[in-house]
Simulated scan of single mutants.
Amino acid sequence: MPDEEKVFAAQGRRTQGLALRRERRPCRARRPPLHPIPTARLHGLDPEAYLRDVLRVLAHWPHQRYLELAPKYWAATRARLLPAELDAEVGELTVPAPVAASPKEQASPR
């Protein structure tokens, strides 16, 4: 094997070793909080009731407005839903009109 090929092979093994080491120790600090149960608890919601209600509403909710179903906004969204429809196991659900964004949210760049 020529010297150049030995160098490239050694670099490949070194690179693979670094990649494997990175996979063994994932950085948890950079992961966003995407789990609904701890996030619901963080916002003072009962996780079981939150998941039950969101799963009930999800099939009827417009996909452009899924952010309203996040735990941060769920209390305001739930207050606008009809309790009788939400408590029913199955059936139609009336989706309320979207909430107008506050002036602070309108001014913030996205």
Rank of each mutant, 00 (worst) to 15 (best):
R22M: 14
E23K: 13
E23Y: 06
E23F: 08
R25V: 11
R25P: 00
R25C: 09
R25N: 07
P26W: 07
R28S: 12
R28G: 15
R28Y: 14
A29S: 13
A29K: 13
A29H: 12
P32S: 09
L34P: 00
L34I: 10
L34V: 06
A40Q: 08
R41P: 02
R41D: 01
L42K: 11
H43C: 12
H43Q: 08
H43R: 09
L45G: 01
P47G: 08
E48P: 00
E48M: 07
A49D: 15
A49T: 13
Y50D: 02
R52K: 11
D53T: 12
L55F: 13
R56K: 12
R56C: 07
W61G: 04
H63M: 11
H63G: 10
H63L: 14
R65M: 03
L67R: 15
L67T: 11
L67N: 06
L67Q: 10
E68K: 02
L69R: 03
W74I: 00
W74G: 00
A75C: 05
A75H: 09
T77V: 09
T77W: 03
R80P: 07
L82G: 00
L82N: 13
A84K: 13
E85F: 05
E85W: 09
L86D: 10
D87F: 00
E89R: 14
V90W: 12
G91Y: 04
E92S: 13
L93T: 04
A97C: 09
A97P: 01
A97G: 10
P98G: 11
